[in-house]
């Protein structure tokens, strides 16, 4: 995973709340078996509308997204994170995220920061005054800056540390393999196993 320390890039105002992962990437794009190349799926239905924000040339190379509350609710599809990442987004700011989406983002190096709704609205206004303006995200300081506005965002310490270090979760967990083995030795024998397979017939 790529390390995330400081990122500066085009700020995009997506002035909507409740953006579910079906909107971020429709199910038809989930049939692929690769892990990259999902940029065409990002907001695919909305991008067919001429006035959608990413169709404005000022925002076409967006890297930092500012959205209303409840971003990434619904389906667990990690493709939503891959699509944002493949398009070029490095960070998303919202007053509230869907839990699964937020967890997925943290594992793919996409920063999700929580900032209050009134701050999102002020940032939207600032961007609309200067379309194409950059946002600067400083993960060490936990701040995002757009023009005159600097906001402190919330992110949990553990995710922040992993993003800063670019750490792989599986590698971290396998350092505790002895604890896993010890736990397995304590599990009751009546717990279900899928093998050998049993069916009703």
């Amino acid at each position: 995973m790529e390390k995330f320390e400081t990122v500066t890039g085009t700020a995009v105002p997506l002035m909507q709340n409740t953006i579910d992962t079906d909107q971020i990437i429709p199910a038809v794009f989930l049939k692929r078996i690769t892990k990259t190349g999902y940029e065409d799926g990002l907001f695919n239905l909305w991008r067919q509308e001429p006035d959608f924000v990413l169709n404005d040339p000022a925002y076409a190379d967006g890297q930092v997204l500012f959205v209303g509350p409840d971003f990434g609710v619904g389906s667990s599809r990690e493709h939503a994170v891959w699509a944002l990442r493949d398009y070029g987004f490095r960070a998303v700011f919202s007053p509230r995220f869907g839990d699964i989406f937020r967890g997925n983002a943290g594992k793919q190096g996409l920063l999700t920061g929580v900032i209050p709704e009134d701050v999102v609205q002020r940032i939207w206004e600032a961007i609309l005054e200067q379309p194409g303006i950059d946002a600067t995200v400083d993960l060490h300081a936990r701040t995002v800056t757009v023009g005159e506005i600097t906001a402190v965002f919330e992110i949990d310490d553990y995710t922040r540390w992993r993003l800063l270090e670019g750490l792989d979760d599986i590698g971290l967990t396998l350092r505790d393999e002895d604890a896993i083995t010890a736990y397995e030795a304590r599990r009751p024998s009546w717990l279900p196993t899928t093998i050998p397979a049993r069916t009703a017939d």
Binding site: E78, N104, K107, Y158
Partner: peptide
């Protein structure tokens, strides 16, 4: 609970998940 694909791989490899 539902998980993303990175977590699917994590469970396959370790049978665990780091969770708050």
């Amino acid at each position: 609970f539902g998980i993303g694909t990175s977590e699917v791989e994590h469970v396959m490899a370790t049978q665990t998940l780091p969770l708050k």
